[in-house]
């Protein structure tokens, strides 16, 4: 993983910690296949909207409203891939 991608992943983890109120150690254990949407009851529509808006701010990216899709949040890996694709391209 490039330094840039590692930085994006760390930002995604930190944002999930803030929004879900989970411990940093629990978030540190998230890997590619960790399920998010459906597995974490806190991740409702409002949390999804908050997460996307906060990632835009922290990563300096723009997310189109059409891209709001729970598939993005199916796993931690899918969310990181989406964010890396936005931030590094």
């Amino acid at each position: 993983m490039s330094d840039g991608a590692a930085m994006v992943e760390a930002t995604v983890r930190a944002t999930l910690v803030d929004i879900l109120g989970i411990s940093a150690s629990r978030a540190a254990a998230f890997d590619e296949t960790t399920p998010l949407f459906g597995a974490l009851p806190e991740l409702d529509s409002m949390a999804v909207a908050t997460l996307l808006t906060e990632l835009e701010d922290r990563l300096g990216i723009a997310i189109d409203d059409d891209e709001i899709d729970v598939d993005l949040f199916e796993t931690f890996g899918a969310l990181v891939r989406f964010a890396v694709g936005k931030a590094l391209n």
Partner: peptide, 17 residues
């Protein structure tokens, strides 16, 4: 504008569900 954006996205995410 950021507050409005997050609120509108909540509505869109709700509607999609």
């Amino acid at each position: 504008a950021t507050i409005v954006k997050a609120m509108i996205r909540t509505r869109i995410a709700c509607d999609k569900e």
